[in-house]
Design a protein around this nucleic acid. Structure first.
Lengths: 338, 338
DNA sequence: GACCCGAAGTGTTACGTATAACGTCCCTCT
DNA sequence: AGAGGGACGTTATACGTAACACTTCGGGTC
């Protein structure tokens, strides 16, 4: 009988089953066809079960050099978007026998340049979502296979990228508003240096410019309800003709815009239209419900993991942005006649 | 020169510095005072830096049997509450040289009974937040040190528990509403079997019962905006005198209640008061802003990690629930005269 | 001069696993 | 009858690290 004070090892199982440790490894590693008899294999399996044997992962990792674990780095967990990304990634990973460790990139915790000091797991690869470029260099320094989500495909240090077609989403928003008759737009932009927000600004400018007589005013705010509130209030109390619609970089900013508009006595959508981007639960909690762009976070995570698995396999990941969809709700309407 | 195709090991560093591997281990493990001269130590350090040496964690874990990594199991990442718990836990962990791996307990991914198959890291301990009891048995089977957050202190299989004083929060809500004059309450309860929600119901019942002439009606809803919407709508269109306030088990349910009340043509707080619990960003995005109970998620995570560190140290974790605070906003007011 | 002691290291081992290389039998083919 | 080859295993080894036990050497003590 093995000591109960410590976890049983494959050798304990071997002892119990009356075979060698190697046989245990073969049977439990499912590599025994033609090497061990069915009856012996069964004896090993029952012994393992009886002892409650669970392989020591550290030993396995040391031996194999691979961990079948990947790291998902996300900027924050303050919206359910990244929860969806994780869910999708973890599902695909599980289908391939991989595990996913989640690493919310800290703002105050430890050195952000070294995710691995904090998530001490040994890793086979990394998926980084919406990360700034300087964080990447540390990751690249480790030569780990890397997939970037929501990042500049041309500036990702050669790493594979997977993106949502956010530019198209913004185009759909612009087309929707232009179609309703809006010409003066306030762009409530996230005050965060990131490719994903640059894309929004560029796409909005490009599609508005196609129609003569349009005008974009830009307000910048940190991604928080209060930040968006003050930025919107300032922008709308500035002199000049008032915009008839507010295009927000994401739903959270839109929630702040709602508050600012209420405070200014403007009614949505009668006096002014508002759009968001993400389609969080928040979007339907607002009154009126928010017209926004739905992002399929789970699919995003799945595609990201598939890309990483491809890289680990030495294959080229398939390209192609993930389509997004405009969801029209109650926060947009034609502008009032001036 | 070591091969550049593979990561340098401590032996490579030893070779480069002209010392033994044991000396490298001593120096880099900071256990060399009185065993290695300062000049030699410095030579080892520069060699390690030049080669870009990073210790192999799998080997270290195998040797030491500990990983300085703990697992934080949370039910979901769909609210920022658990992001705060993680942040607090990770901060305390980092101060003690520990890392935290986050494991969102899946609903569809892999076997929920075996978190470790998915988060394949080897672990020193586990913090489980708001988990159902059956998930615990699997964890306990591994004999890992365990701390439970937000769980029944008397039924946690002997594990240490850390709790927010939610009962007191509910008491504050009840006192607030009773003080305003409310007597008929609708309790919008989460339709999830969990200690944390049982506590709410019991505390509410207990404190309402202290005042004669009070009445609690209960509606159960899954924790989603839509679920809360339909549950609230049904409850309020039932026969009998209408409640004058809705006490919600959390802010998300409150958001659903808002929608139901709007749909029924009831105005908040003039026709009916609403309270939440959590104080998410959502609470201030609602119109009117939600009266709710503020939970200090980060402190919760900190205390949880401190408790786990205590257990790992063989000490007894300090007890004491974390106080919570009622935040009165615009969603509560005295009931209208009948 | 014999003795001890601390400084400064080195040699060796073990952690638990996966697998390459190596033995037996025993059955079958020629 | 001898060779060949599957079926069924076992033995031995390496992964990279930390730590125990040991060696060497110069100087101080009585």
């Amino acid at each position: 009988m093995a000591r109960s004070s410590t976890r049983p090892t494959s050798r304990d199982v071997a002892l119990a089953a009356g075979v060698s440790q190697a046989a245990v490894s073969l049977v439990l590693g499912d590599k025994w066809r033609g090497r061990v008899s069915e009856t012996t294999a069964e004896r090993v399996r029952t012994a393992a079960r009886d002892l409650g044997y669970r392989p020591n992962l550290a030993a396995r990792h040391l031996r194999l050099g691979r961990t079948r674990t990947v790291l998902l780095v996300v900027p924050a967990l303050t919206t359910e978007f990244f929860a969806g990304v994780y869910t999708g990634a973890a599902r695909v990973a599980a289908e391939h026998g991989f595990g996913v460790v989640l690493y919310p990139s800290p703002e105050g915790i430890g050195p952000a340049r070294d995710p691995f000091a904090s998530a001490q797991a040994a890793l086979d690869g990394v998926i980084a979502s919406s990360m700034a470029a300087d964080a990447l260099t540390a990751i690249r320094g480790d030569q780990l296979p890397l997939v970037m989500l929501d990042s500049d495909p041309t500036g990702s240090l050669g790493a594979a990228t997977v993106n949502l077609d956010i530019a198209d989403g913004v185009r759909q928003v612009a087309a929707h508003l232009l179609g309703l008759g809006h010409r003066r737009i306030l762009h409530l932009a996230a005050d965060v240096p990131s490719w994903t927000f640059d894309v929004r600004a560029k796409a909005l400018a490009a599609h508005m410019a196609a129609v003569p007589g349009t005008e974009i005013r830009t307000a910048r705010a940190p991604i928080s309800i209060d930040g968006a509130l003050t930025a919107t209030e300032t922008a709308l109390t500035a002199p000049g003709p008032r915009p008839t619609a507010v295009v927000c970089d994401d739903d959270k900013l839109a929630a702040g815009a709602y508050k600012a508009l209420r405070r200014l006595g403007l009614r949505i959508p009668d006096d002014i239209s508002v759009t968001g981007l993400d389609d969080l639960a928040l979007a339907t909690a607002l009154d009126p419900e928010l017209t926004t762009v739905r992002l399929d976070a789970e699919l995003f995570g799945e595609r990201g993991m598939q890309a990483l698995l491809a890289v680990l396999d030495g294959r080229r990941p398939d390209g192609g942005d993930i389509p997004v969809e405009l969801v029209v709700r109650g926060s947009t309407a034609p502008p009032r006649a001036p």
